[in-house]
Nucleic acid binder design. Structure first.
Length: 484
RNA sequence: GCCCCCAUCGUCUAGUCAGGUCCAGGACACCGGAUUUUCGAUCCGGCGACACGGGUUCGAAUCCCGUUGGGGGUACCA
């Protein structure tokens, strides 16, 4: 095995906890675990406008829920903290000072308005929008004077105007950019906060990160990072860019077109292990071709080499649904009941849940389906359309007689009939009257459950008990009479 | 516009780096059949792809070039 890898995810606490964060976390954590390294959670709250404590808490909660816990982070601490960038401002300032002193960065006093106007002009002139270098080579005396006067400014990276920069992406190989196309990136904002680029490089180094596995959208900023690493004399970590999750139209996955918040999946009643399994299937595959596997298996077999550079994984909930169903069906009834209760299924229905779960397990994909499918166990259905009681190609008279006939057989049954008892009664009735069994079943099904699509009927009756069944039959007969 | 990445069934992918074993394999979805008291589950079967054009080679999904297409980036957001 190789050296222990230290990996990280670096989400911004802006908005809901994002599936993209979880997606990247899967690979980072897998690599760290596989090599006996550490998986770090760093909060990149350098955008003061948008960062919120609530969002940060949601990130903690949702990642933990997914089983993607971290070895070091703002909440658990660690030897390389603090793990919240807003608490590391001094560190960034030191680094920026080093860079300015060395001339690899410089103060820029252009105002946001000036920059916006500049971009506008460039756009109109069909020029590529980029910083025009106003302060790049300003006389030192002037810069010092403005600095002393306390003029608001940012600090920019001094990118060479010539030559090219090449780096290696572990997934795609060598990638080269012409330096002339790289802007003088802002490193330190006017509010004294670092930009992503600076903070990211500094922290990855200081935190001992060896492998950066992140989304493809970052590829074009790597050259800037290369300059920062060089300017600081820090070695580059290994970089691996995974494909971006996509909407159906192939654009970068977004809130408008996909459920992107992990909370949504929690609320819908997905299994975290199924979600993680699903994410690991996007842009990645096990050598064996196995599609259903747990995280331990991924940890064992993970290899950056197998990340697919050409994937453009459309986020396909249908496959997640299928996977989740597979997990649900593979679970023991006890475990499943516990999970459904934990999901929020009413605790006072726990006993009943355990009784009907055997006939419900194979019928659900997500936990939010349980309640609607099983409400009939708890309350007599009364608001269904009586027409539903009449099977296809049958008439009301048939429905009435079937219900009556079955109801009349109930008293003769055991006080607590089994499913088999009920089934025998249906059979006897159908045989005697020369009815199609299926028609009798359908009629009874609607009377007892209020729906045409339900868990198996006689088992449901067994759970409901003879009295409830009888009561529902009488109600159905009445309903049929009402509008006849 | 400019820069970068990418191009296999509707979708997720295997195969591409080390060209022949691929008239391209698996999965989801879809369609059909079996089973069946509905739904579901299950089992069988089917549909369905190497973007296009050149080149290299005895041989190309695999290598090269171009075209087209898709995506990302181009902020004092990450």
């Amino acid at each position: 095995m190789t050296q222990p890898a230290r990996t990280r995810i670096a989400p911004s606490p802006t908005g809901d906890p994002h599936v993209g964060t979880a997606y990247v976390a899967v690979f980072n954590k897998a690599l760290a675990m596989q090599t006996g390294g550490q998986f770090v959670l760093r909060i990149e709250d350098t955008d003061r406008e948008r960062s919120t404590a609530a969002s940060e808490a949601a990130i903690f909660r949702s990642l933990a829920w997914l089983g993607l816990g971290w070895d070091e982070g703002p909440d658990v601490g660690g030897p390389h903290g603090p793990y919240r960038q807003s608490e590391r401002l001094d560190i960034y300032h030191d680094h920026v000072k080093r860079m300015v002193d060395a001339g690899t960065a410089y103060p820029c006093f252009c105002t946001p308005d000036e920059l916006a106007a500049m971009r506008q002009r460039q756009k109109e002139a069909k020029q590529p929008p980029r910083y025009d270098g106003t302060w790049r080579d300003a006389p030192k005396a002037k810069v010092d004077e403005w600095l002393r006067a306390g003029k608001p400014h940012v600090v920019r990276l001094r990118v060479p105007n010539e030559g090219s920069t090449t780096f290696t992406d572990e997934v795609r190989g060598a990638i080269t950019f012409e330096n002339a196309n790289i802007d003088d990136q802002v490193l330190l904002k006017g509010d004294g906060f670092p930009t992503y680029h600076l903070a990211n490089v500094v922290d990855d180094h200081l935190m001992g990160i060896t492998h950066v596995i992140r989304a493809e959208e970052w590829i074009s900023s790597v050259p800037k990072h290369v300059f920062i690493y060089d300017a600081l004399g820090y070695p580059m970590p290994k970089l691996a860019h995974v494909p971006l999750l996509r909407n159906k139209d192939k654009s970068k996955i977004s809130k408008r077109k996909n459920p992107v918040s992990i909370d949504w999946y929690t609320e819908k009643g997905y299994l975290p292990e199924a979600i993680v399994n699903f994410l690991a299937l996007l842009g990645y595959s096990l050598e064996s071709g196995e599609e259903i596997f747990d995280f331990a298996t991924l940890v064992e077999q993970f290899s950056i080499d197998r990340i697919n550079p050409s994937a453009a994984p459309v986020f396909n909930l249908e496959k997640l649904d299928w996977l989740n169903g597979e997990y649900v069906r593979a679970m023991s009834l006890d475990a499943l009941a516990e999970r459904i209760l934990a999901f929020g299924y009413p605790a006072d229905r726990a006993d009943m849940l355990r009784r009907f779960l055997p006939i419900v397990q194979e019928r659900i994909k997500t936990f939010d389906e349980v309640a609607p499918m099983t409400d009939f166990f708890f309350a007599d259905p009364t608001d269904y359309d009586p027409e539903l009681l009449v099977p296809k190609k049958c008439d009301r008279a048939f429905a009435r007689e079937a219900l009556r006939g079955f109801a009349d057989r109930l008293p003769a049954l055991d006080a607590a009939p089994t499913g088999a008892d009920y089934e025998a009664a249906v059979d006897a009735l159908a045989t005697e009257r020369e009815w199609k069994r299926g028609n009798v079943f359908m009629c009874l099904r609607v009377a007892v459950t209020g729906s045409k699509q339900t868990p198996p009927l006689v088992e449901s009756m067994e759970i409901l008990g003879r009295d409830a069944v009888a009561r529902r039959l009488e109600h159905a007969i009445t309903r049929l009479g009402e509008t006849a």
